[in-house]
Design a protein around this nucleic acid. Structure first.
Length: 478
RNA sequence: GCUGAUAUAGUGUAGUCGGUCAAUCAUGUAGGACUCUCACUCCUACGACUGGGGUUCAAAUCCCCAUAUCAGCACCA
């Protein structure tokens, strides 16, 4: 029993890992981290923790057009929130000199050439398995061209360094892919440069130089892995072990950073932490705990199958984490006013957490006037005001005291609902992915900013802010 | 089109050397117990090996074909 439980929470072992591993998380700094990044960073983190070793956070900022300067800081915050144990940070933009050196070397040994064909022209040749004229240049000519890329003789789009593979390789994705290019129309926020490595080149060089032993990444990189192996081969390096996990789609969510970016720009979203986005900061704001994300990701594992991420599974893990720590309060959605006749003056003592009196009680004093959720009026005439007494609805806005008996209400199968006296509430709006729900809640909620609480019979929420006496909450989950 | 990866219940996962798998665990759904919440806890039920061949005494597990899904074929990562 115990063995099984442990087994299911353990991911399969990694080859050649017993002596420790060196792994990496290598995002492009184009925005904050989202669920997809969480998977990559957590899976790698899991194995580094399991086997020991180091975990390098490598910032792949070699495309000046795709660098969002604020992202450097956002990513670091997100990793911290996730609890990723980073041992080193490497900026690829600091390492351009290294890439230049290795580019020169690989050209020098005939493993690459400088191509001046137009991209479209090369593409046609490649698909026809035909070499372009540049491929036959001598090493000396290529080295000269390489110097000309660096000294500005060539400008953006005029030359690219290609790794020599097999021009008739069965997989067109492999044939003579690019390794270095010129970008002089966009400035890089961190460095002054015009020649940049393409991902496959810088990744291969760094994976070797930084001593990577294992690489876990999405299967969209399978072709890149094959390409990078050419570079390892040319230099005589031993490549790391690779593991490719499947694509992950998320129910009702757009994960692409660029579309999120656009949505924020045009006002569709309020920001990177808009509740409708799959960013980690959005989830944090909703009251999702990083441990829940980690548990969900570990459970998904490294399988190569394409999966659709289910919020239900994440929510279940989160509920397990936050339930005990979340105090209970009343929230009355779409309040309807009722005047209750003949009700005895009573004060309700509702536990902050049922089953644990030690945590204390909220006191709500009945004074003849109450607000109840509008939808509870439908089809119900006998209603139990939770922790108070029963009432019988007699009209649009009137009701009459109907005794204290709890057994009676149960026998009648009447609902036991939340309620509040109008003078003991604060307005409250709850932001959900589907829209805003408004109502009133207990005044005590105003003291819970930053915490997750549970609105009874409604669900868990995180109290985000209190302004002008009005509570703003984010819906976590039921 | 070419190259490759994957295919277990609504969702996620276990099952890696074929038999002990009419298939694990979680989530979900339904019902029940408990409870002054539709939460928590507990019980019960429901629900899957993509299809077709083959190898074998025996296949979810091996082989082949088909189908489906996804990815790559960028001077993005």
């Amino acid at each position: 029993m115990h063995e099984k439980r442990e087994k299911s929470s353990d991911l399969p072992p990694l080859p050649d890992a017993e002596g420790g591993v060196v792994m990496r998380f290598a995002p492009n700094p184009s925005g904050p981290l989202h669920l997809g990044h969480a998977r990559a960073s957590i899976l790698n983190d899991y194995y580094v923790r399991r086997y020991g070793g180091s975990y390098i956070y490598r910032i792949e900022d070699t495309d000046p057009k795709r660098v969002v300067p604020e992202a450097y800081e956002m990513v670091r915050e997100d990793l911290e929130w996730l609890g990723i144990a980073i041992s080193d940070i490497v900026y690829q933009s600091d390492r351009l000199g290294i890439y230049y050196e290795y580019a020169r070397r690989i050209i020098g040994i005939g493993g690459a050439y400088v191509c001046t064909c137009e991209a479209e022209r090369f593409r046609e040749l490649k698909l026809a398995k035909k070499a372009c004229p540049c491929r036959d240049l001598t090493v000396e000519e290529n080295l000269l061209r390489w110097e000309q890329m660096l000294d500005g003789t060539f400008i953006e789009g005029e030359a690219t360094v290609r790794i020599r593979t097999e021009i008739d390789h069965p997989d067109p994705a492999i044939r003579d892919f690019s390794a270095m290019r010129i970008v002089n129309t966009t400035l890089h926020p961190r460095v002054d440069a015009t020649v940049y490595p393409l991902m496959n080149f810088s990744v291969a060089i760094d994976d070797h130089l930084l001593g990577m032993t294992h690489v876990i990444r999405g299967k969209d990189h399978i072709a890149n892995t094959r390409r990078q192996k050419y570079i390892f081969d040319y230099f005589g390096w031993k490549p790391p072990h690779y593991l490719h996990y499947g694509r992950m789609s998320i129910e009702g969510l757009v994960l692409s950073t660029s579309s999120m970016h656009q949505g924020i720009a045009d006002g569709t979203f309020t920001g990177w932490d808009d509740i409708r986005l799959g960013t980690l900061r959005a989830m944090a704001r909703r009251g999702i705990r990083p441990e829940a994300v980690r548990a969900a990701v570990i459970e998904i594992g490294c399988g190569g199958t394409d999966i659709s991420f289910s919020w239900d599974n994440l929510f279940a893990k989160n509920r397990e984490l936050i339930d005990k720590g979340s105090d209970r309060y009343f929230f009355v959605q779409d309040p309807v006013h009722l005047t209750v006749k003949d009700g005895p003056e009573q004060t309700a003592h509702a536990p902050l957490y049922p089953g644990d009196e030690e945590r204390g009680y909220r006191t709500i004093t009945f004074n003849g006037e109450i607000l109840i959720p509008g939808k509870e009026m439908e089809g119900n005439d006998l209603i139990r005001l939770k922790d108070l007494f029963n009432i019988r609805v007699t009209g649009e806005n009137t009701a009459v005291y109907a005794g204290d008996s709890l057994t009676e209400i149960r026998a009648a199968k009447g609902p036991i609902i939340q309620w509040l006296p109008p003078d003991q509430t604060v307005p409250c709006r709850i932001l959900t992915p589907e829209g805003i729900i408004s109502g009133v809640c207990e005044a005590g909620v105003a003291g819970c900013v930053g915490e997750t609480i549970q609105f009874e019979r409604f669900g868990f929420v995180r109290i985000d802010a209190v302004a002008d006496g009005c509570v703003t909450a984010y819906f976590t989950h039921r």
